[in-house]
Simulated scan of single mutants.
Amino acid sequence: MAGLTMLAGLTLPAIAPPLAWASPGPNAYVANGVSNNVSVIDTAANTVVGSPIPVGNNPLDVAITPNGQRAYVTNVGANNVSVIDTVTNTVVGSPIPVGSLPAGVAITPNGQRAYVTNGGSNNVSVIDTATNTVVGSPIPVGNNPFGVAITPNG
């Protein structure tokens, strides 16, 4: 499978969409890149729950807060992050603007921050999950950052 060419000529590694990550509760959230939405799977029954949740253009990654209440979705084609309330499975608030081509997202173990890689900006944005706003200046990193992970001690 070839890499995925994005805006500004950047190429992201080839992946097998859709990507899915399980929440601490009974559901998994799947970013449906071409469909611009997120599907919810009941992991006990292995069935889709309800209708897909509309998010921004080309959702790519999903991270769930440790308490299971929110899902953060990177929208690589919209340069923002959508937040889903996992109780109601609806988007809350407006999309959070971040850098160019947001790809990866990870939540700190205490749930207070979301770290978002911005492949087109070569940096990482930090979101305060209490206010759903970007805090501080973007953190410069190497070219075309894609994934991000946080140590268990945060």
Rank of each mutant, 00 (worst) to 15 (best):
S35C: 04
V40W: 04
V40K: 02
I41F: 05
I41L: 13
D42Y: 07
A44Q: 01
A44T: 11
A45Q: 09
T47L: 11
G50I: 01
S51M: 13
S51C: 05
P52G: 06
P52I: 07
P52C: 14
I53C: 10
P54A: 12
P54D: 11
G56R: 06
N58Q: 12
P59H: 09
L60E: 00
L60V: 09
L60S: 07
L60P: 07
D61S: 13
D61Y: 15
A63Q: 01
I64L: 09
T65C: 06
T65F: 01
P66N: 01
N67T: 03
G68Q: 05
Q69T: 11
Q69D: 13
Q69C: 02
R70F: 14
A71R: 04
A71C: 13
A71K: 06
Y72N: 07
V73T: 03
V73K: 02
N75K: 10
V76R: 09
A78D: 10
N79G: 02
N79P: 11
N80K: 04
N80F: 05
N80Q: 05
V81S: 05
V81G: 03
V83Y: 15
I84W: 04
V87F: 15
T88R: 11
T90A: 13
T90S: 12
T90E: 09
V91K: 01
V92R: 10
V92F: 14
V92H: 14
V92S: 09
V92C: 11
G93H: 13
G93L: 12
S94I: 07
P95G: 00
P95F: 05
P97I: 10
V98E: 00
S100E: 08
L101V: 11
L101M: 11
P102C: 04
A103H: 11
V105F: 14
V105H: 08
V105R: 01
A106K: 04
I107C: 07
I107D: 00
T108S: 14
P109C: 08
N110E: 12
N110D: 15
G111F: 08
Q112W: 14
Q112D: 12
R113G: 11
R113N: 09
A114D: 00
A114F: 05
V116K: 03
V116G: 03
T117D: 02
G119H: 06
G119F: 00
G120T: 07
G120K: 04
G120H: 10
S121H: 12
S121R: 06
S121Q: 00
N122Y: 10
N122M: 05
N122S: 15
N122W: 03
N123S: 15
N123I: 08
V124A: 00
S125K: 00
V126I: 15
V126R: 03
